[in-house]
Amino acid sequence: MMLWLLTPALAAPVELDPAPPLLYLDPATLRQHLHAQLGALETCFADLTDADFTLGLTLGRDGVATEPILTPADPGRQACLASALAELSFPPHHEDPLQIESILVWRAGRLVPHPHLTVATRPVDLLFIHVSDPDVASALWASLQGTPAED
């Protein structure tokens, strides 16, 4: 007779919510959080009429956004954003610091949510084969495809 019986603790009713999520952030989630907090950045654009910028951010594992990069370059406004970012919070996550990019649209005295948001992806060349040197892995991947990498 098998002795495998569930313990009383293991047999207790399950709580379906909340479930621990995988803490990886997809662009849709990031966009939602950024759009909800655009107001905190508006003070940095109050001197403008209408303008468009591309905003790059680094998002740490703790959800803190730092290192704003504005395009076109505007050092003064970028410094203002660096301070304003302290008001923003994103969910903590499992990944390395994420590089994200979005578009800031300044119209009629407010930042208008824009759907563009991208997350920089890691290059992953050779899968299912363990090669510790990433350069060697990349070269093997290229050779496998019949296009040897240039030195």
């Binding site: 495998w4 603790a9 047999a11 009713p13 399950v14």
Partner: peptide
Amino acid sequence: TTWLWVWACATLPQQRLQQPLAPL
């Protein structure tokens, strides 16, 4: 818990098997 569940099926009464497992 799935592993326990399947293995335990040999001897556990059916009504007990239908109880979900606790989130440990």
